[in-house]
Design a protein around this nucleic acid. Sequence first.
DNA 1: TTGTAGGCGTTATCAG
DNA 2: CTGATAACGCCTACAA
Lengths: 336, 336
Amino acid sequence: MATIKEVSRLANVSTASVSKVINGDYSGVSEATKERILWAAKELKYRPNRLARGLVKSRTTIAGLLVPDISNPYFAELAKGLEEEAEQNGYNLILCNTADNPKKERKYIHMLVEYNADGVVLCGMESYDKTGVEMLTEREIPFVSIDRDADVSAPVSFYSNSMLGAMLATERLMACGHREIAFIGGEKVPEGRNKRYAGFLAAMASRNLSPDDNLIRFGPYNTQTGYERATELLRGSKKFTAIVCANDLIALGAVKAIREKGLDVPKDISLTGYDDILLSSLFEPKLTTIRQDSYTLGREVFKELLGVILGERKEKIVRTFEPELVLRESVRNIGQ
Amino acid sequence: MATIKEVSRLANVSTASVSKVINGDYSGVSEATKERILWAAKELKYRPNRLARGLVKSRTTIAGLLVPDISNPYFAELAKGLEEEAEQNGYNLILCNTADNPKKERKYIHMLVEYNADGVVLCGMESYDKTGVEMLTEREIPFVSIDRDADVSAPVSFYSNSMLGAMLATERLMACGHREIAFIGGEKVPEGRNKRYAGFLAAMASRNLSPDDNLIRFGPYNTQTGYERATELLRGSKKFTAIVCANDLIALGAVKAIREKGLDVPKDISLTGYDDILLSSLFEPKLTTIRQDSYTLGREVFKELLGVILGERKEKIVRTFEPELVLRESVRNIGQ
DNA sequence: TTGTAGGCGTTATCAG
DNA sequence: CTGATAACGCCTACAA
């Protein structure tokens, strides 16, 4: 690998001039030497070393993306939006799959700090330890937290008002006459940190309903949880006519379980999802769910992050994106 | 950010000793100084700078992952497997979404080279330019190519025998009595580089069938392609009883189009997918498809990559993973 | 057992 | 307009 020194030798100039030219700063450089440098660089197939560069400047154009599960389409879309915006701005994304594991999250944050990452994006975990966030704050590494209301110190926060979203879904069910409603998803964490669960409870309470404990199930946001928890629910003695699922994957898993019992959605049991992943409108029945355009969210998130990285924005930023109920076919009106 | 120098000052030792200790090399270091160093490091919240380290050693523990589309569950699963294996080995993954764009692919490879990435994983693109791969080869950066038979110089290659996979799917359809079979997916590229298309053609040829040109459609591997191309197909005058879809997403999109026409899968039209993404068994009808466990593939890929990075394996590695037909509900037997 | 010093590849300052 | 040269933070012989 050719270095700047070799280029300077071949072009018969100093490394200083080479550095300027390869960084596109032609001020104070004669046309002739500029040409010579460009030629030499090409000749030697020179590529600047970003490690060296990052060491001396204090910017690396590296950003970290921490997601609980990249195989969840919601996060995959988010990652895609983030990546596109990042790439367009010359940034690189280090993919960190935390698997909802606080230890792994912390370890990754350590790594990102060690790489001198310019910024970090953190996505929802209901239970996590604060040390990672504290480290970012101490080192003044800009980060944006998405849907994590524990990160009060975040320079940029995006909140989706998940509680409202879950309320909308639950409301819809109740408006269609459902009263015995089950809930599946997320973790049982204190302080209402499981926002979707909290929204479910709040909506129920608004109609003076209190859900039966046997109808509340928790688990990771994937299809397996939906399948298994719904199977348990169906085996239980407690009757229910609808399920609020904490995300679309859970809902899809639940549908499978319901069908295997010989029942139909929405004829026998209604349900709602959350996220509106691309596939939920292709699915049969088309899922009634809460839309969150995570691709666009990703783009917005990176823009804001870049803003603070570049120091254009100094004040704390808090943005919310409103969840939206999308009515499809998985909820049936059962009258009063 | 504390540096090694500050730690050495606080601990009253040389930077050399600090360096050793923080790298876990306690040989030739007294217990007392070791303790002192560890204490000082903790006191100052010292974190080694990976840029500096990478500069002097020539390893960065950075690997690049180039995928066409991270929002395709197949690649998301692959990324997940790769990430887990990487993380367990102290490696970080830079996520590069190429969007099937050769320019973007090349740009990313440049970046990875500039970061001194230890290795790169390249996933299928039917059309691409060779300069990226050439650069990797020249600089002797280990890379593994997945399903890219143009990368003959790859130190490690994984081939899925996609041609066979597509043949299996097509065969299945023919065995069920289908003769007018359409195909959707991928790009129209020369040299049979679109392996799934090539497999489709080969299977047809084996029964002396030659597909009607009007029944062949191309496009990106997403649901939109499936939906739009299938809609066109249904509008066309040319009759067909089945569709071979180049991946599951396309198949899901096609199902939607078929239903919107008031037709049923598989009653009126049969179809096959490819990849067996998690969702295709939840879908209704459950997709008959070709299984490729991309999560496991991801893990294997990283293991091999690590092997060449560490220099444990010098010879060229070629591994194949066999596609497997999984029979489900989207194909109907229409007799002879 | 411990310390010194050179170098990894850049950038940036400051003379010439 | 151009060229030395000192950092950036770390590792690693080589000395002491």
